[in-house]
Design a protein around this nucleic acid. Sequence first.
DNA 1: TGCCACGACGAACGAGCGCTAGTGAGCCTT
DNA 2: AAGGCTCACTAGCGCTCGTTCGTCGTGGCA
Lengths: 209, 209
Amino acid sequence: MSAVSTNPADLAEPRATRTALTPDVVLDAALTLFAQRGYHGTALSQIAEVLRVRTPSLYNHMGSKHDLLLTIVDRATAGVLADFHRVVDPADPPVEQLRKATHVYVHRHVTHRREALVVNRDTGSLAEPAVGEMQARRREHEHALRAVIAAGVAAGELRVESPALASFAIREMCVSVARWFSPHGALTAEQVADQYVEFALRVAGHLER
Amino acid sequence: MSAVSTNPADLAEPRATRTALTPDVVLDAALTLFAQRGYHGTALSQIAEVLRVRTPSLYNHMGSKHDLLLTIVDRATAGVLADFHRVVDPADPPVEQLRKATHVYVHRHVTHRREALVVNRDTGSLAEPAVGEMQARRREHEHALRAVIAAGVAAGELRVESPALASFAIREMCVSVARWFSPHGALTAEQVADQYVEFALRVAGHLER
DNA sequence: TGCCACGACGAACGAGCGCTAGTGAGCCTT
DNA sequence: AAGGCTCACTAGCGCTCGTTCGTCGTGGCA
């Protein structure tokens, strides 16, 4: 099928005209390049080049290269947790919680592909204590999803041997969407999210309707 | 559950006593460090330090830093394809092929965690034409798995809307095992592989027994 | 019109990188 | 005992990195 693309150029449009430089513009360019080449594989001179500016000018709009990464990872991981707690209602039946949790998670990874790639690849390049804090956030989401699955099993709605294993599998399955999705493909973010919700429910052993 | 570990130190044991230096020893140390810090995040001086040797000594046993990465990725991707064709018998029913393909794939990612991490993270850091060649191998495996699923759907043994999407989901689910598995955990490679085969069959819509 | 804050710039820094060359110590062979 | 080979070493190369500093042109405001 031609619905998807592995073309990494889907991430980048070389800024043709030189627009006003702001912290957000710098952050956005860094995000694109970090996602493409990785944190250590990206030089500040490359970010400056994309922005049609000399390297030192960047320092008028940022703290340091490390700060860029920290801000990116911080916002991204906070967003995932915010998504989860916004859409998952503890009063809902576990299956419904799993459905909603998976949907936002996939949807975020489709609409925030660059952030997802950077978080998954370069969180380890942060300095302490930031590494620990960011990993703690990921663990929080992981445990929340695991609890939902465990509750579903306890309620007889789901059937898995190990909620932890199922939770790992589902999460990584969703994350990987960022690696192949293309906005130019045949599938919309919504369609992909719906498909992956179905996959997640199957992995979790939801009884067929 | 305490069956798994996210401790990255599971990858590295700092070589206490200085053993004889050989190309394989250098490659192994590079593999460990690349998996931990990434290709661009690893300096040759760090590899040398682990081996209790000065940096230039490495060049008696390797071509260049880039050669190390190339060798690692080359062996790893070739191994995946060899695994697939060794265990998957085209004469088998599609479901059986999917079962075997998933099992070796997970098993390899459990027993070759470092290789998997490096391939997924740093293949893009290779120079042309190596990048293209390695990606072509990954595509070959991807298409082979997709064909198996499509055949299963055609035979009425599996049920998915899009074999491509299911193939993506299953592959990445298996790959991610390298990210959390610990040999010190409660689960053996075989047990994890069996569990993930079950997950894969569920994603592919295999009818429950 | 004069002033001032903003910010892009050239120059340059110290550090670290991958890698090369030449030297000399230890070992095997004869 | 003498020779040659292997290989780890010191020294140092050219380069790029992230970052700092002081200058200077410009646009908004008095």
